[in-house]
Write a protein that binds this DNA or RNA. Structure first.
Ligand code: MN
Ligand code: MN
Ligand code: MN
Ligand code: MN
Lengths: 220, 220
DNA sequence: TAATATTTTTAGACTAGTCTAAAAATATTT
DNA sequence: AAATATTTTTAGACTAGTCTAAAAATATTA
């Protein structure tokens, strides 16, 4: 059995490996784990002995197939619990993450598979992130930041980069929620702010900061 | 914030205090916590400093009002999660306890209150045990063991003393499930086994061991 | 009430996970 | 290539929670 701490390290390393390529370095891990590089070295040695990752001194770490599988199971649990809180208990999308951080550590395969079924085998969590299946497969759709689209292009809001409560609440206030279709009207050369039209609404201005943190599936 | 271990100690002490009167002794705690008396002494000192219980050397411990409140919150969470697993995810009544042991440690008042509402404010868990309310109140109904009833008396199965999977599965095989009405037909003077009639069924024999572990609400 | 048995506490040690400070390795700049 | 800066590792220490072995207190029996 793995401890909560071990599980959180594996999840953190997986996420780092996702974005920044292959080998993950000690300081990066220390930063997301809110700990010191020395502690990371200790833990990484332990996880390496448990065959969850491969590690070479000064060369960073890389998850093994076993470690990758474990990370995906954690993510599956996290996102299914978020969906439960959102769909069944009517939590808002900015409240679900912290509780899911606790729930993702509950050990029971049957529990998570029954929950999956109870929720109707959802494909995405309340933030639009894909939920890995029982098999560990994760279906990836090409998503674009609003800031990446050109004038006149259309898209459907399908995810967020920033998951903070503050940001999610801001989006909600501006009708920028999952599933909404939008069109790019114009861009400012001064501050890269955008004018967009939300389906069934009037055009609004959004900052470049917002545009870089909302993900779209291209449409039309 | 309290650790899982601290929480489990408080719950254990509460349960001991329930049955065996006021002051709980070290060895008894050690036994349910599956640990050594020395470890109990260490922990009990710590919990005493945290004002969760009062402790006098060699005299045993007693929960404070704070400790009692905490224990009831744990029990509320445990029983609500058991009800969730049973009612919503279709677990059988002998499968829910172990997972609830994990879930009862999730920290979120909103979560548990929303879960309570989602379940329709249940009054009893799948084993018939009462679920403490938000206020910490627990409604107690007078229950009797089957073995305590006399010939010709009627009762409705409303709880169990023994919660083991083996026992619960045995009951299920014999139609002895929550809500069933039964009548005492006769008792054997030899081994105290009983002949009982289950509502809408034919009379069956049950051992004294079973009769001492099933709780009834008297009826008629 | 004295001897004996049982329960409880203390003392000291161990592991997991963390930390700080300093040493060693690697990367960058001159 | 040498000097300097940064990253990573090691060494040693701390806390929480546990253990065993032995001492101290309490309970039971003769
Ligand atoms: Mn999340
Ligand atoms: Mn999410
Ligand atoms: Mn239970
Ligand atoms: Mn129960």
């Amino acid at each position: 059995m793995y401890s909560f701490t071990e599980e959180n390290y594996i999840k953190a390393i997986y996420k780092l490996q996702e974005k920044s390529g292959i080998s993950v370095n000690t300081n990066a891990i220390a930063e997301i784990m809110q700990t010191k590089a020395a502690s990371v070295t200790d833990m990484v040695k332990k996880l390496s002995e448990k065959k969850l990752l491969s590690y070479a001194k000064y060369k960073g770490v890389e998850l093994t197939e076993l470690g990758r599988k474990m990370a995906l199971e954690m993510i599956r649990k996290h996102r299914l619990w978020e969906t439960f809180l959102y769909d069944k208990l009517n939590f808002s999308w900015d409240e679900v993450h912290d509780i899911a951080e606790q729930l993702e550590h509950i050990k029971s395969t049957k529990l998570i598979d029954c929950l999956d079924e109870f929720l109707g085998f959802p494909e995405n969590d309340p933030h639009g992130d894909p939920i890995p299946g029982k098999n560990g497969l994760i279906q990836r759709i090409e998503l674009y930041k609003i800031s990446e689209l050109g004038i006149g292009e259309f898209g459907v809001i399908s995810g967020v980069v920033n998951h903070s409560s503050l940001f999610l609440q801001h989006l909600e206030k501006n009708q920028l929620v999952l599933g909404k279709g939008i069109e790019i009207i114009s861009k400012s050369d001064f501050d890269q702010s955008l004018r967009i039209k939300i389906e069934g609404g009037i055009p609004i201005m959004i900052s470049n900061e917002v545009a870089r943190n909302v993900l779209l599936k291209k449409s039309r």
